[in-house]
Write a protein that binds this DNA or RNA. Structure first.
Length: 915
RNA sequence: GGGCGGUUAGCUCAGUCGGUCAGAGCGCCUCGCUUACACCGAGGAUGUCGGGGGUUCGAGUCCCUCACCGCCCACCA
């Protein structure tokens, strides 16, 4: 890149090569120390409110994927704009230890080495994990830099570092003391593969074609012996849980079973007499209307069991094999046991029916194992009171969720929330700071070394045993917005940056993470952790499918950066998206984004190379002298003023896809296609005063400068590279990253509706002439004499732009007429007529081409038909009294003018074709 | 079972308060190496805005309903 310290008006290399520029520019940002809120190079205004983004810390488990890239880009866009608005910005990098995710990954790694968690043991396993994490950590942080993320590296945090650990201990201890954390035996979701419990959110209901079996239970007679004649049939999809049955339930109002309620049945194979109970939970029309009750292995049965005071019987072990309570089936895996039991029932003649049954099976989000509901003594968080305050925060507007449609699911989830099981039987994570004494007393302590004695009986710490379990990863993630600021200590950062401004993440972790941060943040700090929750959509493969490594349809963001550049990736990910909606990502988008960057680069190259010699190469940027501008420059500045305002608003509204669309149009369609093309003519017009040429150039520089600023959040490297070569103003810093965001108010001074309308009419004329030439198959490069009829109000503008019109429409020489008579008199046979609004042009005849003539005629006919149709519609509306009476006056007025214009156009076209 | 998205050009998608909104990019067709850019320029074609009702002077836009696709939540064994 251009490395001269002043770097003003330097020439840009022919091509922008990401590989050469990106690393160097990132280094310059780092050296300038602009990322931290108080960095030496930061130009933050301390009197302005800080702008803080809470970033979802990526898991330490591996490389970053395209979803991380989108997250990073959106956040970087916001933080860069805030920085340019001179707000002190805090965007803090972090990593999550992801206990279960990390263990799944590491288990696979060590399995390849012939080791396992069991063979290594807790201590060696954790050493191994630390080594692994040390590596991936560096990879991930390096990748974040490749994205261009302007993170405050001085504040990098990890959910397992000392500060976070202290926050976790403190948070849990407080919750315990407030009776918001409790330990109890309850039915939890057990993953036999991961050998841990998981939260409700980590259980994925998966459709499966199973079987519904009908099984006959024998009632006991008065002597307690099975009655061969009297049976009751129950329907089940899980015959292996028969062994844990404690009752058979029927609906209280079911006449079929009224007589048997209260009698006993014998549980097959284990020969346990259990009662027939009546409970409204039973659906009479499902299966046989009789339901077996297995409280230890089914959540609903558990509830039913407790209602009837029935003790659960656990028949399965942690590995999902049947235990001693399963009698003859002890030791068998759950599915092997199922087959054996079915065979045995069949043999006994008690298997009545087996029919296919579509159902949902809970599977582990991580391992895909079928989740087994099991009874375990574990820690839970009482979520209702916490959720109530989170709901209050969104209802009162303390926190806004965007897009708004997510409020509904938010409300629903937090209203129906159940207590949160936070115990995990894993090794990698924060160990639960609870100690148990031999008498069963519990002592919870936030001290690093644990309690000195049992809280209840005073037994010394040596006799206490710490809970083996660790916390659900999301518990420490839930503390992230404030643990990263030093909580529980009253740090300066905490005072200054809590609550944060924006929490940005994918909608898929709204419950896992956002809800937990809200609940815990409000609880511990009495204030919601952020003003706005902005949820983005998921990045999908071009086919619409979820990207997955096994399917092989992933786009690796780092590969994309290597190949096409970080700016292109960033732009591609954001361009055209809308909040909360998924996007399909493809190569095409990347290429389109790269082309846009290339366009901007070349436009800048042109401008820098077109500097009038009268302006010194190192001249500081000054505003153009308005008295020496042509209409096209006034048009360009006016368009830019509108763009600045629109982009600014879009950014405020989190409409980033809209912002890039506006900038794309302004840069390509307005600045390059017209602005530069018009300006070329003026800049090379030796007949113009030097001051005019200078003003024209400064106008180009001015708008380019504004575009670079607006585009910087999206294309940080490219814009920084160009900016280094452009003239700077007296108040400008060395680096664009800390330059001021364009002020819509200031730009609005340049709005010039008159110039816009006038130049737009001229642009129309040029387009129409080009169109006519194209149809007439006139070679593009060929110059033809032309005549134009110019309405009086446009005469001045036209005169100024005439050289450009001549060049752009290839009408040379060009004669302008203000009188129709003169215009008509100048006509020669065979010439081509062009109509563009009230402007008319004529292209001198070349070699006669009847086919082209016919084509042109056909086109005019089409145009006439169109105009007539629109005219009829407009007149119809105006004739409608209801319309003129009820529509707003402005709309009616608009219809009148458009009708008048259309009428004029129809008349002209008719004259042309028929007259 | 409940809820939420989506359905607009061949493809990917914008479209705010109902009123020049029938749009963009890519692709396609025809020209063109005009001294910023072929990662380009000029021009062109393509639509019952998923179907059906309704509200309104006026509906991709609001309401109802149906269809299909996707997602989230949920204790019919």
């Amino acid at each position: 890149m251009t490395d001269s310290p002043s770097g003003r008006s330097a020439a840009l290399p022919k091509a922008y090569l990401p590989a050469e520029f990106e690393t160097a520019i990132y280094e310059r940002w780092l050296t300038a120390d602009v990322f931290a809120p108080d960095g030496a190079g930061s130009r933050a205004d301390p009197s302005k409110p800080p702008f803080t983004i809470v970033q979802p810390p990526p898991n330490v488990t591996g490389a970053l994927h395209i979803g991380h890239a989108l997250t990073a880009d959106l956040e970087d866009v916001m933080i860069r704009r805030a920085r340019m608005l001179r707000r002190p910005t805090l965007w803090l990098p972090g990593l999550d230890h992801a206990s279960i995710g990390a263990q799944v990954v590491l288990d696979k790694l060590i399995a390849a080495e012939g080791e396992s968690r069991a063979s290594l043991g807790r201590e060696r396993y954790l050493e191994r994990m630390n080594a692994f994490v040390e590596e991936t950590r560096e990879t991930i942080l390096r990748q974040s830099r490749r994205f261009g993320s302007s993170l405050d590296w001085s504040r990098t945090r990890f959910t397992m570092d000392e500060v976070s650990s202290k926050a976790v201990r403190t948070a849990f201890t407080r919750l315990y003391r407030e009776d918001l954390a409790y330990r109890t035996e309850a039915l939890i979701n057990w993953c036999p593969g991961c050998r841990t419990s998981v939260s409700d959110l980590e259980v994925l209901p998966t459709p499966e074609s199973g079987t519904l079996w009908t099984i006959r239970y024998h009632l006991l007679d008065a002597d307690g012996r099975p009655d061969p004649a009297l049976t009751i049939s129950v329907a089940t999809t899980r015959p292996e849980t028969i062994l844990g049955d404690v009752a058979v339930a029927v609906h209280p109002d079911d006449p079929r079973y009224a007589a048997v309620v209260g009698r006993q049945v014998l549980v097959p194979f284990v020969d346990r007499p259990v009662p027939i109970i009546a409970d409204a939970v039973v659906q009479r029309d499902f299966g046989t209307g009789a339901l077996k009750i297995t409280p230890a292995h089914d959540p609903e049965d558990h509830a039913t069991g407790s209602r009837h005071g029935l003790a659960p019987i656990t028949v399965m072990d942690d590995d999902a094999s049947l235990n001693a309570a399963a009698g003859p089936y002890a030791g068998l895996d759950r599915y092997a046991a199922r087959q054996r039991i079915l065979a045995d029932l069949e043999a006994a003649g008690d298997l009545v029916e087996a029919k296919p049954h579509e159902m949902l099976i809970g599977r582990c989000q991580r391992s895909n194992d079928v989740i087994e509901p099991r009874l375990k003594t574990q820690w839970f968080i009482r979520t209702k009171p916490l959720a109530a305050r989170a709901l209050e925060a969104t209802r009162t507007g303390q926190t806004t969720i965007l897009p708004g449609r997510f409020v509904k699911v938010w409300e629903h989830w937090l209203t129906e929330i159940r207590d949160w099981n936070i115990s995990r039987q894993l090794w990698w994570g924060h160990r639960i700071p609870a100690w148990y004494c031999p008498d069963g007393h519990v002592t919870v302590s936030d001290q690093v070394g644990g309690p000195s004695a049992c809280e209840a009986c005073g037994r010394p710490s040596a006799e206490l045993v710490q809970d083996d379990d660790i916390f659900d990863t999301w518990f420490s993630s839930g503390l992230w917005p404030f643990s990263t600021l030093g909580w529980p200590d009253e740090t300066a950062d905490l005072r200054r940056f809590y609550p944060g401004t924006v929490m940005e993440t994918g909608y898929d972790i709204i419950f896992f993470w956002v809800a937990r941060m809200m609940m815990l943040g409000i609880h511990f700090l009495d204030e919601a952790p952020f003003e706005t929750v902005y949820l983005h959509g998921l990045v999908r493969a071009g086919s619409g499918a979820k990207m997955s490594k096994t399917v092989g349809n992933v786009v690796d963001p780092l590969e994309a950066i290597d190949e096409i550049g970080a700016d292109a990736l960033r732009f591609a990910l954001i361009h055209g998206i809308s909040p909360g909606n998924d996007q399909k990502f493809s190569r095409d988008k990347l290429e389109s984004a790269r082309n846009f960057g290339n366009k901007l680069w070349n436009a800048a190259r042109f401008v820098l190379g077109a500097r009038p010699p009268s302006i010194p190469a190192d001249a500081g940027r000054v505003p153009p002298d308005p008295d020496h501008l042509g209409p096209s420059e006034r048009w360009l500045r006016s368009r830019m003023a509108a763009t600045v305002a629109a982009v600014d608003t879009a950014m405020d509204d989190f409409a980033f896809g809209e912002a890039t669309r506006l900038l794309y149009d302004m840069t390509w369609s307005a600045y390059c296609d017209w602005g530069l093309e018009f300006a070329k003519v003026r800049l090379s017009d030796a007949g113009l005063p030097e001051t005019d040429r200078e003003a024209t150039w400064w106008a180009l520089v001015e708008v380019l400068d504004g575009l670079l600023r607006l585009l910087h959040p999206f294309l940080p490297y490219l814009t920084e590279a160009i900016w280094a070569a452009t003239p700077h103003g007296p108040d400008d810093p060395e680096l664009l990253i800390v330059a001021d965001w364009p002020d819509p108010e200031a730009w609005s001074q340049l709005a010039d509706g008159g110039s816009e309308r006038a130049v737009d009419r001229v642009r129309d004329l040029i387009s129409e002439v080009r169109n006519a030439r194209s149809i007439a198959k006139i070679v593009a490069a060929e110059r033809r004499p032309g005549d134009v009829l110019v309405p009086p109000d446009l005469a001045a503008t036209f005169a100024e732009l005439a050289p450009a019109i001549g060049r752009m429409a290839r009408l040379e020489p060009l004669v302008a007429h203000t009188e129709r008579v003169a215009f008509l008199a100048a006509e020669r046979p065979g010439s081509l007529a062009v109509i563009a609004g009230e402007l008319e042009a004529r292209i001198a005849a070349g070699a006669a081409d009847p086919a082209a003539d016919l084509a042109e005629r056909a086109r005019l006919e089409r145009e006439l038909a169109d105009a007539e149709r629109h005219l009829a519609a407009a007149r119809g509306r105006l004739a409608n009294e209801a319309f003129t009476a009820k529509a707003p006056p402005a709309v009616v007025e608009g219809a009148r003018t458009s009708a008048a214009e259309l009428a004029e156009q129809v008349a002209r076209l008719t004259l042309r074709l028929r007259g």
